[in-house]
């Protein structure tokens, strides 16, 4: 019995999630001690609502990285599809609910994702290059063909969705209130679906398989091209959904303010223990890593760090975090080679 416990502990110590969780907790406690505000109900709600959109993006980025690819086009993709959706609904003076906006954005996201999937899946071009190119193309379509400008008015359905809340948290000390946006539900639903997909379907296990060894997956009779294609379509849809949530929550459509998010999102996913080379990582770790980045970006101000310093901390976090996991990998390899040698010598 004892040995199984120590075994589990040993297995845990080789994973990333516990470390990320520990760092996260330390940070939270530190902020709490310094400010006394971190664990207040309204701050937690604020963090949850700030987490919804990056969380959605991270889920998409996670799937791509697991499959051995990388996607830097999702902010441009989301911006384009949500901008086109909003513009269209404004032009036809749509007065109905938010569902139509979500549907149109999902459809557009699927088409744009298919563009990535076509070149990466079927032409087998490197994912980094394709998504660099497509991100440029999407930006071009949005700013050139659609002549995008900031839309300060959004359709009523989206506006209502953005202002409606599940509940309101009030801070008993300061009296500040925060709304839990309905958009968090969209995030939770997608999180649940993708968790199920990655853990309980052959499609999801296939993504892990492709990330581990594409040739083996192919020889096993797995449709590698189709799987990749469908995955990029899904990721396009998830990114578009994130875009809609963002516009609804901000109550305005700004064509460029999502651009540039890709780096921090990818950093969060990798911090959570997802191997940048693919095949290894859990959705839980990915969420913890992203949460860590979101908290650093949003809560440092609570301990008196001016906002202008937040990039310094994110940068340090990325370097130290990836450095630690790179060190862990090399240590594991060394341990493993010694172990196998020992095993063979016995």
């Amino acid at each position: 019995m004892k040995s199984t416990i120590s075994n589990t502990l040993q297995k845990l110590s080789r994973r990333n999630e516990p470390y990320v969780f520990l760092v996260l907790m330390l940070l939270c406690v530190l902020i709490e001690i310094r400010s006394g505000q971190f664990f207040s109900s309204n701050n937690l709600v604020d963090i949850a609502s700030a987490f919804a959109v990056p969380g959605l993006f991270a889920i998409g980025a996670f799937m791509v990285i697991i499959s051995g690819g990388i996607d830097v086009s999702f902010p441009a993709l989301a911006s384009l599809s949500v901008y086109a959706t909003t513009k269209f609904l404004l032009d036809v003076n749509y007065q109905g609910g938010v569902w139509l906006a979500i549907l149109i954005a999902l459809a557009l996201g699927a088409i744009l994702g298919a563009f990535n999937g076509l070149f990466i899946g079927y032409f087998r071009l490197p994912a980094l290059i394709v998504t660099l190119g497509s991100s440029s193309v999407f930006k071009g379509i949005m700013q050139g063909a659609l002549n995008s400008k900031q839309l300060t008015v959004i359709p009523i359905g989206m506006k209502n969705f953005g202002t409606s809340s599940l509940f309101i948290a009030k801070n008993p000390v300061s009296g500040l209130t925060s709304r839990m946006p309905v958009a968090i539900l969209a995030f939770l639903i997608v999180l649940f679906l993708v968790y199920f997909l990655m853990r309980y379907t052959m499609f999801g296990r296939g993504l892990y398989g492709i990330g581990g060894s594409e040739i083996s997956a192919h020889r096993a009779g797995f449709g590698v091209r189709n799987t990749k294609f469908i995955m990029y379509v899904m990721v396009g849809m998830i990114a578009s959904l994130a875009g809609v949530m963002r516009v609804c929550m901000m109550q305005q459509a700004h064509p460029t303010n999502m651009l540039g998010m890709e780096m921090n999102i990818i950093a969060g996913v990798v911090l959570g223990g997802t191997a940048i080379t693919g095949g290894r990582g859990t959705l839980l770790g990915c969420m913890l890593g992203t949460l860590l980045i979101v908290i650093v970006e949003n809560s440092l101000i609570l301990i008196g760090v001016p906002t202008s310093w937040k990039s310094v901390f994110t940068g340090l976090l990325i370097i130290i975090g990836t450095g630690v996991s790179a060190y862990q990998v090399s240590r594991m390899n060394r341990v493993r080679s010694v172990e196998t040698v020992a095993k063979e010598v016995v």
Binding site: R205, Y208, G209, G211, G212, I215, S216, A275, G278, G279
Partner: peptide, 16 residues
């Protein structure tokens, strides 16, 4: 190269 998935468990490799 045995066509295995180094990143998956023995169980999954066998059942895949």
């Amino acid at each position: 190269d045995f066509s295995i998935f180094p990143n998956l468990t023995v169980m999954e490799n066998l059942a895949f």
